[in-house]
């Protein structure tokens, strides 16, 4: 039998210690892995909840960071109604806000919008058609001028004639104006610079299908990003749209970013089913955006009843 020396005991203890610490580090690794999986699950549940029930979804804040429930088998009739509201997003070369718009409509309506390409001559059966922002055809000739003459715009006009709601945001507004679906023109900003900042808007008319979830005169926040948002119309046209309550949004609190006449930020057509606006409501629809002042616009258009105001 070998002699049990203190050296041997020392070596054995050292080896045991090394193995133990290996086991420990593997255990910690697994624990991290489990935590990561738990995090993924929580975010997936949050996404699911958001998609299936846009009314009760509250983005995580300090006060409600508890993990969302998994079981969501019952839906309210309100929710189901929103599921019937279908939307389409027009995609043209040079647009860059289409993904933001698709994400916003998916979150709010609970259903991904169909996308329609410039050469499409038909738009599927939808309740809302949205032309997002960007720089279609590189703003050649005039902003929106080329896009307005593409085949898809004839299909958009046909939808509008049938009473389908149409929203044009930023370049989408310019395209609607160039297509003659909205009056006036959008000219170079008066200071000649591209403007990218947040402005305040006043809801001038809350009695429309686009603004019914806002209060009349409500001041909302909205991001803008454009070079040609300076709205212009001849005096007769201006008097008509003002007199008919067709200016839905006006830049408020001296935040007119482009020299737009009468501080006009958004207008509707005479029938009230085609809206054009320069600000980007799709970029302010959830807490992660820093606010949700743009959300009621889409909820109004999609016939979704206003939610309770979020706790501050």
């Amino acid at each position: 039998m070998a002699e049990i020396s203190s050296d041997l005991i020392y070596e054995i203890l050292k080896s045991v210690q090394t193995r133990l610490s290996n086991v420990e580090s593997v255990a910690i690794e697994h624990s991290h892995g489990l935590n990561a999986i738990r995090g993924h699950l929580a975010s997936m549940q949050a996404e699911q909840q958001c998609v299936f029930d846009p009314h009760t979804h509250r983005p995580a804040t300090r006060s409600n960071r508890t993990p969302p429930r998994i079981a969501r088998t019952r839906r309210t009739s309100k929710t189901i109604r929103s599921h019937h509201m279908k939307s389409a997003v027009v995609v043209l070369p040079g647009l860059n806000r289409d993904r933001d718009m698709i994400a916003a409509l998916t979150k709010i309506s609970g259903k991904a919008p169909v996308t329609v390409w410039q050469t499409d001559t038909e738009i599927p059966d939808v309740d809302l058609v949205v032309i997002p922002g960007g720089f279609s055809y590189g703003d050649y000739l005039r902003c929106g001028a080329i896009a307005a003459r593409m085949p898809v715009m004839r299909a958009v006009a046909e939808k509008a004639e049938k009473g389908v709601q149409v929203i044009g945001v930023c370049n989408g507004f310019q395209i609607l104006v160039e297509a003659g679906m909205l009056p006036g023109a959008l000219m170079r900003n008066d200071h000649l610079k591209f403007v990218c900042r947040e402005v305040k808007l006043r809801v001038e008319n809350a009695n429309t299908s686009f603004t019914s979830n806002y209060a009349p005169g409500q001041i909302i926040r909205a991001p803008v990003a454009h070079h040609d948002g300076n709205y212009f119309a001849d005096p007769d046209t201006l008097a008509r749209i003002e007199g008919e309550g067709r200016v839905l949004f006006r830049y408020a609190e001296n935040t007119n970013p482009n020299g737009s006449i009468n501080d006009i930020a958004g207008i509707v057509n005479d029938r009230g089913n085609v809206l054009g606006l320069m600000p980007h409501p799709e970029n302010l629809i959830e807490a992660a955006h820093g606010g949700s002042d743009g959300r009621p616009l889409f909820e109004s258009a999609l016939g979704i009843v206003a939610r309770q105001p979020e706790p501050a």
């Binding site: 000739l141 001028a145 009056p183 023109a185 001849d234």
Partner: peptide
């Protein structure tokens, strides 16, 4: 009328 000019402005 149809493209080169925007006759509004």
């Amino acid at each position: 009328d149809r493209l080169l000019a925007n006759t509004v402005i």
